[in-house]
Amino acid sequence: MSAGGDPLPLLAALAVSIEALVDLTGPGHYLDWRFIQISGANFAVIVLMLVVFALALFLPFPGGRKR
């Protein structure tokens, strides 16, 4: 199996050489609040969605040029 025959050879080789920079395979972190349990990762994703949504609403959009 030569490297040239594989798709994405450069990136794949890079990925193999550095593995994951941030190791997420350890024991999971969970947030507990009454009957609600959520993993730290899922919580981060949901908070990030809300933040990005708010930013999309509040940040000024460039180029208001009309014609």
Partner: peptide, 8 residues
């Protein structure tokens, strides 16, 4: 909703 480890 969950994944093994700390993945979303």
């Amino acid at each position: 909703m969950n994944e093994t480890g700390n993945f979303p």
